[in-house]
C-alpha cells in the first residue's frame, strides 16, 4: 500500500494524495490504538442506547432496558426530601407558635416553609417579601398593622381572612360618607385636611373645621387621636403609612367612597402546618410585634 502513495520530493515522506492549490498534505499516520479508542466510544454509545432512554419517537421515547429515567430519579429524590420533611412537619403541627419560635431548628424550617408558602399563595397580592402593592395591598414588612402584628393576630388573619363570609373573619366596614350623603364635599375636604394634621401636617381653618366633624363621625373606629383601633380594623391615621395614598385628594376620595380590600380565609385551603409557618414568616418580615 505504501507504493500507492506519492512521496513528497523535499522530505521523502509519503503524502495522503490530497492536494489544495499545489500543496499536498503529508501523511502522519494516526496510531491504530487511537482509532480503536474511537471504535470503543462507538461501542459505548451503542450499549448506552440499549441501556438508557435514548431514541425519540413521535410520542415519547425509548425507555432503555435499565428502566432509568431522569424524572424517576427526581421523583426518588423528591420522595427522600419529603420523608425528611415529614418529621419537621409533624413537629410544626404539634408545637405552638411560641414553641416554634423558641427552637432554632424548627424556626429555621418554619421560615423556609413559610417563604415557600408565601411565594405560592400570598405574593400575588402582598408581593415577594411582603413589599405590598399599590391600590390597597398592605405592606407586611413595615411596623403598621391593620389587624394587629402579634403572632396570634397574624395567624388569626391568615386563618380566617378579612371581610369574608366566615364567622371568625375580620370584619370592618367604612361608611361612604360622600356617596350616601352624610357629608358634603366641602365637609369631606375639611376632614381630609384634619387627617393630614394627625401625622404632622400644619393645621389651617379647613382642618380646624374638619376636627369637629372627625370627632363626631370618625373616632368610633379610628380612635380619638386617630391612632386606629386594631380590634375593629380601624386603621391608624396618625402615621406616615397610607394604604390608598396620603395626598389630600386621595384621603378625601377614601372618605367619600372608600375602597375596601378583602383577603381570603386560608383555613381549609392550606394545611395547619403551612398556616403556622406563614405566620412565623410574616412576623419575621421585619414588622412583627
Amino acid at each position: 500500500m505504501a507504493g500507492d502513495l506519492d512521496r513528497d520530493a523535499l522530505t521523502g515522506k509519503p503524502t495522503t494524495g490530497h492536494e489544495w492549490d499545489g500543496i499536498r498534505e503529508l501523511n502522519n499516520p494516526l496510531p491504530k490504538w487511537w482509532l480503536y479508542v474511537l471504535y470503543a466510544t462507538i461501542l459505548w454509545a451503542a450499549v448506552y442506547v440499549v441501556l438508557f432512554p435514548a431514541i425519540p419517537w413521535f410520542s415519547g421515547h425509548s425507555r432503555g432496558v435499565l428502566g432509568w429515567s431522569m424524572r424517576g430519579e427526581f421523583a426518588e429524590r423528591w420522595a427522600e426530601g419529603r420523608a425528611k420533611q415529614s418529621e419537621f412537619q409533624a413537629r410544626i403541627v404539634a408545637a405552638s407558635i411560641e414553641e416554634i419560635r423558641a427552637d432554632p431548628r424548627l424556626l429555621n424550617y418554619a421560615l423556609a416553609g413559610g417563604r415557600a408558602a408565601f411565594a405560592d399563595n400570598c405574593a400575588p397580592c402582598h408581593a415577594p417579601g411582603g413589599a405590598g402593592r399599590k391600590g390597597g395591598f398592605p405592606v407586611l414588612a413595615d411596623d403598621d398593622w391593620l389587624w394587629g402584628g402579634t403572632l396570634e393576630a397574624i395567624e388569626q388573619t391568615i386563618r380566617h381572612g378579612v371581610r369574608g363570609s366566615g364567622a371568625e373573619s375580620r370584619q370592618s366596614v367604612m361608611p361612604a360618607f360622600g356617596a350616601d350623603g352624610t357629608l358634603t364635599e366641602a365637609q369631606i375636604a375639611d376632614v381630609a385636611a384634619h387627617v393630614l394634621t394627625l401625622s404632622g401636617g400644619a393645621a389651617d381653618d379647613s382642618a380646624n373645621r374638619g376636627k369637629a366633624i372627625f370627632a363626631e363621625q370618625c373616632t368610633a373606629c379610628h380612635g380619638a387621636d386617630g391612632k386606629g383601633v386594631a380590634e375593629l380594623g380601624g386603621p391608624n391615621l396618625a402615621d406616615r403609612i397610607w394604604l390608598y395614598g396620603g395626598a389630600k385628594h386621595e384621603i378625601a376620595a377614601q372618605i367619600a367612597k372608600p375602597r375596601i380590600g378583602v383577603m381570603p380565609a386560608w383555613q381549609g385551603r392550606l394545611d395547619p402546618a403551612a398556616i403556622k409557618m406563614l405566620a412565623v414568616y410574616v412576623h419575621a418580615l421585619g414588622g412583627g410585634k
Partner: peptide
C-alpha cells in the same frame, strides 16, 4: 435585601434589610 428594596415605617423613617 431586594424584596422589598426598602420599607417605609409609620414614623416616616426608611428601613433596609
Amino acid at each position: 435585601e431586594r424584596n422589598p428594596l426598602f420599607v417605609a415605617l409609620s414614623d416616616g423613617s426608611v428601613r433596609n434589610g
